[in-house]
Amino acid sequence: MSKNVLVLGEAREGELRNVSFETIAAAKTISEGGTVTAVLLGDSVENLAQEMVQYGADRVVTVEHPHLKQYTSDAYSQAFMAVYEQEKPDAIVLGHTALGKDLSPKLASKLSSGLISDVTKIEGEGDAAEFIRPIYSGKAFEKVQSKGGLLFITIRPNNIEPLAKDESRSGDVSSLSVDITNLRSVIANVVRKSTEGVDLSEAKVIIAGGRGVKSEDGFKPLEELAHLLGGAVGASRGACDADYCDYSLQIGQTGKVVTPDLYIAVGISGAIQHMAGMSNSKVIVAINKDPEANIFKVADYGIVGDLFEVVPMMIEEVKKLKGSPAV
């Protein structure tokens, strides 16, 4: 049976995040020919609607309100629930991002529904769809099904391929006006710490440093390499515990679980807890002095050597590559 599916588009600094397009692709699989409606919430989001359509949404509903400029669970749940009441969808797909993780359990609770979080793969279509998600931080996977009623999932960024952008697609864009009241949290301040706005969970390339990096300064070359490759910097617990970097960069079973296209582990030995957080990355490179280091067991490519020698050389090589005309 075809399903009508609601997805939430997420913007960061005025641009739609990639995960928004991935939710549309996931929704298409679930909808089996039903309608995919994208929801956009913010103080000014109508200009983003067309791009959601170009990536496959059939319709877009926007809610614009000054209280939606920054995410709070109260404001966003009120706006999303108003769209839900209007659309009465059969399924909902959100990104498993900071926003999605915070908002989805509240919505699921309001809707008395199940919620399958952090889905990395969908098998089958429509009612027969089965959802695969990592458990034990990726040491194992489980396959989950909804037992009926509203189907609600969040998808992990960077795992479900978006549909190709089609600039000739058109779709209906409508706006809904919602009263937003009784906000219990006020955001007093935001300090941006993430590298160049590339978020670890969505980064295509991650350069991660471990104890071997030896100091806060030691992370500078890693940052330069990440910058060149349009990626983000991460760290092992060892590096965070030693105060070389902030805990927000920690990758592992405690910390972030990431699945970039390219993960470069620099001076990381590969404790089981760290490996749980990154071993499902598509391509893994290990740079370590110790040829016996565990990290080489999961690496696609390894260099046994001194990171302080290797990383600067890599920076030069990448510069050469990026500087050369496209072949």
């Binding site: 194992a140 396959k143 099904q145 909804s146 067991k297 696609d300």
Partner: peptide, 24 residues
Amino acid sequence: AKTKTIDIFMPPEKAAGRVLEGDI
């Protein structure tokens, strides 16, 4: 429960990677 786990499985084993050789 509103959802049901129908299977649990291990990630596919990764084939051994390549450790490069020669001058750094």
